[in-house]
Lab assay of single mutants.
Amino acid sequence: KELVLVLYDYQEKSPRELTVKKGDILTLLNSTNKDWWKIEVNGRQGFVPAAYLKKL
């Protein structure tokens, strides 16, 4: 499993997105899109802007 660090808080703006908090370490599911990465948070899957995340 690949992990990502959340660099900035992000509030979901659609049902396909997820809310994340700065400092969270989460599972990366897909990073093929350069702008939006798919991650998992508490069993939910969704997208967060790639600029808000850093691969560990």
Score class of each variant (00 low, 15 high):
1 K>H: 15
1 K>G: 15
1 K>Q: 15
1 K>M: 14
2 E>Q: 13
2 E>M: 12
2 E>W: 11
3 L>I: 08
3 L>G: 03
3 L>Y: 12
3 L>N: 06
4 V>W: 04
4 V>E: 00
5 L>N: 02
5 L>A: 05
5 L>F: 08
6 V>N: 00
6 V>T: 04
6 V>S: 02
7 L>Q: 04
7 L>G: 01
7 L>M: 11
8 Y>M: 12
8 Y>A: 15
8 Y>R: 13
8 Y>C: 12
8 Y>I: 10
8 Y>V: 14
10 Y>Q: 01
10 Y>E: 00
10 Y>N: 01
10 Y>K: 01
10 Y>C: 01
11 Q>I: 10
11 Q>Y: 14
12 E>I: 10
12 E>S: 15
12 E>A: 12
13 K>S: 11
13 K>V: 08
13 K>Q: 14
14 S>D: 12
15 P>H: 13
15 P>G: 13
16 R>E: 14
16 R>I: 13
17 E>V: 04
17 E>G: 10
17 E>Y: 05
18 L>G: 03
19 T>I: 04
19 T>L: 05
19 T>R: 06
21 K>R: 13
21 K>C: 10
21 K>L: 09
22 K>T: 08
23 G>K: 02
23 G>L: 02
23 G>D: 06
24 D>G: 04
25 I>V: 12
26 L>S: 08
26 L>I: 14
27 T>Y: 10
27 T>A: 09
28 L>S: 02
28 L>F: 04
29 L>Y: 04
31 S>G: 11
31 S>D: 14
32 T>K: 15
32 T>V: 11
32 T>Q: 14
33 N>A: 08
33 N>E: 10
33 N>W: 06
33 N>V: 06
34 K>W: 07
34 K>Q: 10
35 D>N: 12
36 W>L: 05
36 W>K: 03
36 W>A: 04
37 W>Q: 01
37 W>D: 01
38 K>G: 05
38 K>D: 05
38 K>P: 01
39 I>H: 00
39 I>Q: 00
39 I>R: 00
40 E>Y: 06
41 V>E: 12
41 V>T: 11
41 V>A: 14
42 N>L: 11
42 N>Y: 07
42 N>H: 11
42 N>E: 11
43 G>D: 09
43 G>I: 03
43 G>L: 06
43 G>V: 03
43 G>N: 10
44 R>V: 10
45 Q>L: 07
47 F>W: 15
48 V>D: 01
48 V>T: 02
48 V>G: 01
48 V>L: 08
48 V>I: 07
48 V>E: 00
50 A>I: 03
50 A>Y: 02
50 A>W: 01
51 A>Q: 13
51 A>S: 13
51 A>M: 12
52 Y>N: 12
52 Y>M: 11
52 Y>L: 10
52 Y>I: 15
54 K>L: 14
54 K>F: 10
55 K>L: 15
55 K>A: 08
55 K>P: 11
56 L>N: 03
56 L>F: 09
56 L>E: 04
